[in-house]
């Protein structure tokens, strides 16, 4: 290990300065991916810059505009917030599915994005919630849609020295709900073989007026699937429509076979999960808790 420096700046400006030297400088949020990768020899940073003492990275605000979530806010802070769980149940579930209770004390939605795993649970849920990513760099700030953040397995749109500061989830329209499901062989502690996020808006008569469907672990990045959403919009979410959304998701998937599952399996099950997640989102609108 060539790690020779650790710093924990207390302002964003200091952090950007510390990270400016190139890829050997790595930002640290919860560390539940980075420290494992260092341990397994997959990454070899020289300088780790801990972002958890920077207010913007650890702030959480929920108001009429929606949720603004610092990129390093740990999962446990989000998932134990009942108001967030009520408004964004699918996103909350997705974040809560990452790792163990112990990992929840550290992992973050921002970190999940930046790790850029195709199987990241948060990402489909962020995408269906139309989340935007606020990025800061020495050259200024910018925003990117969640679906455009990740560019491939392990890669994302951040330039060297840039920091993902926060995520913003707009307040959902009335009669809107989301859901996220994943397939893992055990009940916990696994990486998703398949993930599916759905957000739906229904009118008063139960007709779907808006939908977003995103799928995970079936392509190099999480995919927004407009075709699956189109299969739902304008319907009453009858069984056929749900199935059609599933078929559209299976059709959009470009999975690989690896140690966690086969491409055939992923393609098939992603359709099942989209169908089931859509049914859950619908029931959340019809029977709000």
């Amino acid at each position: 290990m060539s790690l020779v420096q650790y710093s924990a700046p207390s302002t964003l400006a200091e952090a950007l300065q510390a990270l400016a030297g190139g890829a050997a400088n790595r930002p640290l949020a919860g560390g539940t991916d980075l420290l494992v990768q260092v341990k397994l020899g997959l990454r070899d940073p020289q300088h780790i810059v801990d972002l958890k003492r920077i207010p913007e990275l650890t702030a959480l605000t929920l108001d009429d505009n929606g949720l603004r979530l610092g990129a390093a806010v740990p999962g446990a802070i989000v998932t134990t917030n009942r108001e967030i769980a009520r408004i964004y149940p699918g996103f909350t579930e997705a974040l809560g599915l990452i790792g163990s209770s112990q990992v929840q004390g550290r992992c973050s939605a921002g970190g999940n994005l930046c790790n850029a795993s195709p199987a990241a649970d948060c990402v489909p849920a962020l995408i269906v919630n139309r989340a935007t990513c606020h990025i800061a760099g020495l050259g200024g700030e910018r925003t990117v849609a969640a679906e455009d953040f990740t560019t491939g397995p392990g890669t994302h749109c951040l330039e060297d020295g840039e920091i993902l500061v926060s995520l913003e989830l707009p307040r959902p329209a009335p009669r809107t709900a989301d859901a996220y499901l994943r397939m893992i062989p055990r009940t916990e502690m696994d990486i998703a073989i398949v993930g599916a996020g759905v957000a739906l808006t229904l009118d008063e008569s139960g007709v779907c007026t808006d939908a977003r469907v995103a799928i995970g672990a079936v392509a190099p990045t999480a995919l927004l699937v407009p075709g699956a959403a189109a299969a739902l919009i304008g319907t009453t979410l009858d069984e056929d429509s749900l199935r059609n959304a599933g078929y559209a998701a299976s059709g959009a998937a470009v999975p690989i076979t690896d140690k966690r599952g086969t491409a055939d399996y992923r393609r098939k099950v992603v359709g099942v999960l989209v169908r089931r997640a859509a049914a859950i989102a619908r029931s959340r609108i019809e029977q709000p808790t």
């Binding site: 055990r186 009940t187 916990e188 502690m189 696994d190 990486i191 140690k259």
Partner: peptide, 16 residues
Amino acid sequence: LENPGFLDYRMPVASD
């Protein structure tokens, strides 16, 4: 060996 860790060598956990 592709799964030399508890993440992908999937032993039962309490919730299973």
